[in-house]
Simulated assay, not measured.
Amino acid sequence: MAAWMTWRTAMDRALYGADGFYRRGERPAEHFRTSVHASPRFASALARLLAEVDEALGHPARIDLVDVGAGSGRLLANILATADAPLAARLAPVAVEIAPRPPDVPERVEWREDLPDGITGLVIANEWLDNVPLDVVEQTPDGPRTVLVDPASGAERPGPAPSPEDRDWLERWWPLREPGERAEIGRPRCAAWAAVVGRLVRGMAVAIDYSHARTARPVYGTLAGYRDGSTVPAVPDGSCDVTAHVALDACTAAGRDAGATATLLTTQRAALRGLGLSGARPAVEAAHHDPRGYLAALCAAGEDAELTDPTGLGGFGWLVQTVAIPVPAVLS
């Protein structure tokens, strides 16, 4: 017999329950390609962004570097290896992750399940918000109804009307008009992002994710499943990753309400190009007098191209919000 529940409850159990997908230590790179694992040049770009934040903060004796949804911890390890030595020596790196700590994570990285308080520095949330569980609503002839799902099969049926809070969020950020239209209520993600920004004393928080805006919401939503490098049906039974794209414009407003003093909403392509990843191919003449250098530059250009491809990783949205410092000019 089916055990019907809301998508938010089903996602939470499937991803973060006692034997959930991430609780048992599954790593994102084993199931889908991420910027972190596509190239270490992603970390080098974020190391440059960290240097910009450090400059804006006045080079404090300690600077926090927090990776929310750290996965394997590779991003932090790569940034520590890439950052200039004087800056790296002042870093206090923190991985926020519910999965067990991998053995190869540098000893100096603090591994914890919850956000630290009082952050002065840089917070990175790379492909984190898309895994924050949310409810799905479908418009019916009788008005919007919360969608219920059977976690064992993925079958769906209409449930109760959304709560007043969810209806308010829908009207502001994802209004439904025609029967059959669906929306993914991003209110829990707004709250999660506000919790990040609210912990900034001074510094910057960056959310990086596939996203959409109010002017172009997907009519039928974006729920998807990933397993072993393939897209699979979004069945919330714990066997696969279950994600949905992020309404970063709604998160922007939540971050401002939480205390952000400056904001930039851009794309990964634009941000990484500003941080030096141009993707430009080296001049072929260099192959004659420096063949090894030419091959290294050619490899870097290829990696930059993948990271900034507007139809792939470069299409990610970047939500940059700061507290008490400006958004670096290299981004804007």
Score class of each variant (00 low, 15 high):
1 M>C: 12
4 W>L: 08
5 M>P: 08
6 T>D: 05
10 A>W: 02
11 M>V: 02
12 D>T: 05
14 A>G: 06
15 L>P: 03
18 A>K: 11
19 D>I: 01
20 G>S: 05
22 Y>V: 06
23 R>T: 15
29 A>L: 13
32 F>N: 10
32 F>E: 12
35 S>R: 03
39 S>Q: 04
40 P>E: 08
43 A>D: 03
49 L>D: 02
51 A>K: 02
51 A>I: 02
51 A>T: 05
54 D>Y: 11
59 H>L: 12
59 H>I: 04
63 I>E: 04
64 D>F: 15
71 G>V: 09
75 L>C: 13
83 A>D: 01
84 D>N: 07
87 L>Y: 09
87 L>F: 12
89 A>P: 00
93 P>L: 12
96 V>Y: 05
97 E>C: 12
108 R>E: 10
109 V>G: 11
110 E>T: 15
112 R>G: 10
117 D>Y: 08
119 I>S: 11
119 I>M: 14
119 I>N: 13
122 L>T: 01
132 V>P: 03
133 P>V: 03
137 V>Y: 04
137 V>F: 08
148 L>W: 07
150 D>K: 00
155 A>Q: 09
161 A>D: 12
163 S>E: 14
168 D>P: 01
174 W>K: 03
176 L>G: 02
179 P>H: 06
182 R>D: 00
186 G>E: 08
186 G>C: 11
194 A>N: 02
197 V>H: 02
205 A>H: 05
212 H>V: 07
214 R>Y: 01
217 R>L: 14
217 R>N: 10
221 G>L: 09
226 Y>C: 10
234 A>V: 10
239 S>G: 15
244 A>Q: 07
246 V>W: 02
250 A>Y: 01
256 R>S: 13
257 D>L: 15
258 A>E: 01
263 T>E: 14
263 T>N: 06
265 L>P: 01
272 L>V: 09
272 L>T: 03
273 R>I: 14
275 L>E: 07
275 L>Q: 05
281 R>Q: 11
282 P>M: 00
282 P>G: 00
290 D>L: 12
290 D>W: 08
291 P>T: 00
292 R>N: 11
294 Y>P: 12
298 L>R: 11
298 L>N: 04
302 G>Y: 05
308 T>G: 09
313 L>S: 05
315 G>H: 02
320 V>Y: 10
321 Q>Y: 01
323 V>N: 07
328 P>D: 12
329 A>H: 01
330 V>M: 10
331 L>S: 05
